[in-house]
Write a protein that binds this DNA or RNA. Structure first.
Lengths: 265, 265
DNA sequence: ATCTGCTATTTCGCTTTGCGAAACCCTAGG
DNA sequence: CCTAGGGTTTCGCAAAGCGAAATAGCAGAT
């Protein structure tokens, strides 16, 4: 969606906002200014405006700007996702009770998947993704499950031009990935054998709308030490059943949502 | 923080953003335009720009705009709050295990408290606040606990001019509230006897920084039917102990953060 | 205490560019 | 085929966003 209707002050202010919200600490004017490569004065104005709007908070003692509380409120308010979450949570809890491992729910955003709900394992040793956290789609079971349900052309829009290795096992070529996705489609679930995080194995399935288009993915993740082939197969079959039930129940609302492709860094 | 440095396009775009993010469904251009009382053309430009920035999503089928995934990611990324959360979560879980009731963690934002973490009771009947949800400070145990630790003048900045009754029990006058807050300060914990939600009782304590300024509050909430005076006293004493431990552990970072007062609706 | 270097504010005039009324399109329903 | 009700595009004006540069404020060092 290229556009001549973009309002530049807003666009730039959103860069500033992104800069601060993506940081894990509050930032100074100076810092933000160099980070987004905009003049100090301009950034200063945006920061003030964003504080006024309640999107940023300002600590006068240290002269730094942080994420405002309004954003935390907003983060939970996306109705479609909340709906999806509400439907999935009971299933996810049941899966966690049954297998004792972490269950993840994620949606695709550009070339990344965003975790929108997590039912944590109670094991001391567990893979801990965070709600709102992101991983590349092509390195995760959820991502591959979702991609596997897409037509070729759309799929490509969600895969970055070059695949960067997260671990020694990460797939490096599009050809390999295509094979893997084909396999996932035919067998109905995708795997991640330590491709995203060393030692962490995931089994993921797609959740599809009535038209068959994928809208989310659900996975169970566990340390390699606790996950042999037999158990993995169990996970896969339970996940497939659950995802089927959820998909079947998703007829009333239209859960499709277009988000522009994320530009690569 | 009144300011001559406010950039109007940004300010207005943030109204638009707020309108959509505060709604529980995706909205059309028309709808947003009348809601924020800005010309159609202007809102149109802002919406496009915000979609481009990844803050909003656009559903071309229905021509409606919704919350973008980026915001969900941001919502969890406030480092200070995450830090606070990380410290509190184990304690909250322990309290839930021990008493079987819901444990809430909230911070003050203007005249409201925002729930930033919740350990849910497993009872079928439970009071369910949501992370990111808001309630007036003066009707909740957490809010009153936080207010009780403030000097008079600062306190007033976090109490709306007129107290609206949420239930039949809600305090209606500033005098009553002041008495209640005094009592809370002397006894070290605050109560909410169905003042926020009919039939729901809470006991809340403040979490303070090394200087004694309140930065958050923690509460246990339960249906009135499960909460007699003896149990309430138990809750209060455990909460006080836990809050004390947490407050003591909060010396290293500076958890104070100014957020502008929220204007009343 | 004074100086020094850094960063946050403020000023100021230019002209960029945001603005919104109105015209235009386009889909859905009659 | 026509009409209604959105969304999109055009266009010219002047509001107001812009950023260089000057100023103020605040450390830590001498």
């Amino acid at each position: 969606m290229r556009d001549d209707y973009l309002v530049k002050p807003v666009l730039k202010a959103m860069q500033v906002l992104d800069c601060i919200c993506s940081s894990d600490q509050a930032l100074s004017l100076q810092h933000v200014s160099v980070e987004v490569a905009l003049p100090k004065t301009t950034v200063f104005r945006y920061l003030r405006t964003l504080v006024q709007s309640g999107l940023l908070s300002y600590d006068p003692e240290r002269d730094v700007y942080g994420v405002g509380l309004k954003i935390i409120t907003w983060g939970r308010s996306n109705a479609r996702l909340r709906n999806l979450r509400d439907v999935c949570i009971p299933h996810m809890r049941a899966l966690r009770e049954r297998f004792g491992e972490t269950v993840n729910l994620g949606v695709l955003d550009g070339a990344e998947i965003v975790y929108i709900e997590i039912a944590e394992s109670q094991h001391a040793l567990r893979m801990q993704a965070k709600i709102g956290g992101r991983d590349p789609a092509y390195t995760t079971a959820i991502g591959k499950a979702v991609l596997s349900q897409m037509p070729e052309d759309e799929r490509l829009r969600h895969i970055p031009p070059k695949l960067r290795a997260r671990t020694g096992r990460t797939l490096r070529s599009l050809a390999q990935l295509a094979l893997e996705l084909d396999r996932a489609r035919t067998q109905g679930f995708a795997e991640d054998n330590g491709e995203n995080e060393e030692g962490s194995i995931c089994v993921g399935v797609p959740i599809v709308d009535p038209a068959g288009a994928p809208i989310a993915g659900m996975s169970i993740s566990a340390p390699a030490a606790r996950l042999d082939a037999a158990r993995k197969a169990q996970f896969a079959s339970m996940l497939r059943r659950v995802a089927g039930e959820i998909s079947a129940g998703l007829d009333a609302p239209r859960p499709k949502m277009m988000t522009p492709i994320r530009r690569q860094a």
